[in-house]
Nucleic acid binder design. Structure first.
Length: 433
RNA sequence: CGGAAUGUAGCGCAGCAUGGUAGCGCGCUUCACUGGGGGUGAAGAGGUCGCAGGUUCAAAUCCUGUCAUUCCGACCA
């Protein structure tokens, strides 16, 4: 895409309302604009990153055997009255009345709806296990939205729900999702520590929060440093049961649940860090199936309440979390897997025919090769182009100027390391292709 | 929801005490120069000062109300 024809409204100065780095950079890099408190417009590059994250999440869900569907954002109050959560949920639930005075709500989560769907369509153990997911906008009317997209009121979430006949099967479903989560975050280049979370009386130990390590995290974690030996951010291959068991056996707790005196890990092996919650998985047994009557016939012909679990990933929150984990003084440093563009093409001399011709040609070749390229073809100074491209965070910058052209080379800059190499056009296309 | 602050041009801010023609920087437009890290100069455009009342000859400025946004805390499947 040519920058001159694109819509990426970047800003030189920091908007005063943005306090944390990801919020500032998302505004400055032209990814989002605020509509009202905790509600944002996703501009083209922001949307692109959001979609790429969602695609990775989707691929890993599919790989794990989950099946995608799409439930509505607006739900009828009756479902929530059935489960008893309509009154319990409080003011965080945005309640709406339609023209027929019917009570509706903007869904903050979908346990009720999916349980209702399940009970109306699944009657036999033969249809289990079943794991359904969707990636849909949620709304929680947070008292105090903050940190931009990270703690918004409207947010994009992948949530899925597993249905099994008994606890053993449910545990298997749970572990499949555990693995899928490890893989998902690894593909995003993130270290996401699986932290033991308390899911209440029912969940037992089958509940984990996945926390990305970042200084601006809202929660404090204490974890066995042996977890780092798993090299979580590159755990993208097969993950066997043994690895899962080992990892789940290692200590990792949030501050509130951490007991210094009874901690099984030596102080010397314990690490403390701030985390951002980006995923949460838990088994909750028959909490909703019992209250809403979701039963299946077992092999013996007797009906049993179905065993359920639910699993969430904050897709929009991940955009902010990724920036918290990947930025420097100049701007965002996207991992290639989610960057809005892979390459930024910088024409240093707009008015130099040789430069512009070389850029135009190279741009076409890259487009034809399927390389996602952002071509800065504007008539502005070189410094402005470098600064802008750094801010947006494109992983590779191809710099075309008169000096290089005389030598017959193109310059390739790595956004993360700052390293620059000179390459021929063939070498460059081969490297980026 | 408790506490605190702020609303003046797209962004960042000054002006308000002591009422009297709406300001600065960045960005934007045009032109010239420049051309490897947000360059230089000149000329421009852009604001019913959050909104509604009130006081006054006169309100960005004083008074009342209201809305919005932000920060601290509590809360957060």
């Amino acid at each position: 895409m040519r920058l001159s024809k694109h819509f990426i409204p970047t800003m030189k100065e920091n908007p005063s309302e943005a306090q944390i780095v990801s919020h500032r950079l998302m505004l400055r890099a032209g990814m989002i604009r605020q509509s009202s408190a905790g509600i944002y417009i996703w501009l083209p590059t922001g949307l692109s990153v959001l979609n790429k994250i969602a695609d990775i999440v989707r691929e890993e869900q599919n790989r794990a055997g989950a099946i995608e569907l799409l439930m509505p954002t607006i739900q009828p109050a009756e479902l929530w009255q059935e489960s008893g959560r309509y009154d319990a949920y409080g003011k965080e639930m945005l309640r709406i009345t339609d023209r027929h005075e019917r009570n509706m709500l903007f869904g903050p989560t979908n346990e009720e709806m999916i349980t209702d769907l399940f009970k109306n369509n699944v009657k036999s153990y033969k249809d289990l296990p079943l794991n359904l997911y969707h990636i849909q906008w949620k709304f929680r009317d947070e008292v105090r939205p903050r940190f931009g997209i990270m703690r918004g009121r409207e947010f994009l979430m992948k949530d899925n729900y597993s249905f099994d006949l008994d606890f053993e099967a449910a545990k298997e479903s749970y572990n499949k999702m555990y693995v899928a989560y490890l893989r998902t975050f690894a593909r995003l280049g993130l270290v996401a520590i699986p932290v033991r979370a308390d899911a209440g009386a029912i969940g037992g130990d089958l509940s984990h929060e996945f926390q990305i390590l970042a200084e601006t995290g809202e929660s404090t974690l204490h974890y066995d440093k042996a977890i780092e030996d798993f090299d979580l951010s590159s755990l993208t291959g097969d993950i066997d049961d043994e690895t899962v068991a080992k990892l789940q056996g290692l200590y990792a707790m949030e501050e509130e649940k951490h007991d210094v005196d009874n901690c099984p890990v030596d102080a010397a092996d314990l690490k403390t860090a701030k985390g951002i919650e980006v995923g949460h998985i838990f088994y909750f047994g028959t909490k909703y199936s019992a209250s809403m009557g979701a039963r299946v016939a077992g092999p013996d012909g007797k009906e049993v309440d179905v065993e359920m679990g639910s699993y969430g990933i904050g897709v929009s929150r991940l955009v902010g979390a990724l920036i918290e984990a990947n930025h420097d003084d100049n701007g965002i440093v996207w991992p290639e897997s989610v960057a809005p563009y892979k390459v930024g093409l910088i024409n240093l001399r707009f008015k130099d025919e040789n430069c512009t011709n070389a850029c135009d040609t190279l741009y076409e070749k890259m487009e034809n090769a399927g390389i996602e390229v952002l071509y800065d073809d504007r008539d502005v100074g070189a410094g402005a182009k470098f600064a802008n491209m750094d801010l947006i965070g494109v992983p590779w910058q191809v710099v075309v100027g008169p000096k290089g052209l005389e030598k017959g080379v193109l310059e390739l800059k790595n956004r993360r390391t700052g390293e620059r190499v000179e390459l021929s056009e063939e070498e460059l296309l081969a490297k980026l292709g």
